[in-house]
């Protein structure tokens, strides 16, 4: 007979999950419900006279070419910063895992960036990459005008991708390292005895064995770059120049909190929420198939 650990007392079970449910309700379902309501009405800043307008806000959002620009920028930003930061993190982790001299120091320092708040990272990157006064201004002394994120949208975009990737590298690194260290040494050693070199072992043994971690990190990084990029964008570029770095979440902030057009911002957040749900779904549906959980 199958044995199951179940609560015969449903009320007790309910009491146990109530605090969690209450939190989720207060901080997720309620605001989401409010946003939905605002998205289908025209909400005046001080409230009072809102009017049901149906799909008008969504129509306004979707008919705005600048909105689609921000979607494009967001997707590009998510993909490139995720790829960059995962790539760097896995390299760092593979080499730290080899226990080269000083690996303890690396382990500690590589994780540090994640401990910084996004606006602090943004400020640092703004200074480092400022074309007149920053570190990178040396480049402009050799090739005048080569680097100017205040003027050139591509430069500005590269800058925010670098900032986001740099910040996430530490986080990704720790997960990769943990995953690598959980691979039994014997596996690698067996490979070594069969004559596989360092790179061959990394590529054919270690990397395939950490795909569950890789998958988890892809989901986390993509989501993070959609929702947490605000701090970086706000400080480094303010969405400019000419909207080249206006990610969706920054546009929501601007329309809602600066422009005080709550309904337009609410409609955009609903779209963003659906987009992230869809992306996560796609990742679970299609990428997870290729993951081997041991």
């Amino acid at each position: 007979m199958e044995k199951r650990a179940t609560f015969s007392n449903l009320w007790l079970a309910a009491a146990f999950i109530a605090p969690q449910m209450l939190l989720i309700f207060t901080f997720f379902y309620w605001p989401t419900g409010e946003a939905l309501y605002w998205a289908v009405s025209l909400e005046a800043p001080f409230g009072g006279s809102n009017e049901w307008v149906g799909w008008l806000n969504f129509q306004t959002v979707f008919s705005d070419p600048k909105y689609w620009d921000s979607v494009r920028v967001s997707l590009l930003f998510a993909l490139s910063s995720t790829a960059l930061s995962l790539g760097i993190a896995v390299l760092l982790a593979l080499f730290v895992d080899r226990r080269l001299a000083g690996h303890q120091v690396y382990k500690f320092t590589f994780f540090l960036p994640y401990a910084l708040a996004a606006p602090a990272v943004g400020l640092a990157f703004r200074f480092i990459f400022s074309p007149d006064a920053g570190f990178v201004s040396a480049v402009n002394r050799i090739w005048p005008g080569l680097w100017n994120p205040a003027f050139n949208g591509n430069d500005a975009f590269i800058m925010i991708v670098l900032a986001q990737a740099w910040m996430m590298v530490g986080y990704n690194f720790i997960f990769f390292l943990a995953a690598l260290q959980s691979i039994p040494r014997t596996v690698s050693e067996a490979g070594a005895m069969d004559g596989a070199g360092v790179l061959r072992r990394m590529w054919d043994i270690q990397l395939p064995l950490i795909t569950p971690t890789l998958f988890f990190l892809i989901v986390i990084n993509i989501t993070d770059s959609f929702v947490n990029s605000f701090g970086i964008v706000d400080i480094t570029t303010g969405g400019g120049p000419a909207r080249a770095t206006e990610v969706m979440v920054y546009k929501i902030y601007f329309d809602g909190f600066r422009g005080k057009d709550y309904s337009l911002a609410a409609a955009q957040s609903i779209v963003l929420m659906l987009l992230i749900i869809a992306l996560t779904f796609i990742q679970f549906r299609f990428i997870e198939r290729r993951v081997h959980y041991s």
């Binding site: 400019g240 000419a242 057009d261």
Partner: peptide, 19 residues
């Protein structure tokens, strides 16, 4: 109304023109 957003429109369009 919503002059903050109008200012932002002017700024980002001028950025595009000057670039």
């Amino acid at each position: 109304g919503n002059f903050t957003s109008i200012r932002a429109e002017v700024r980002s369009e001028l950025e595009a023109a000057f670039a």
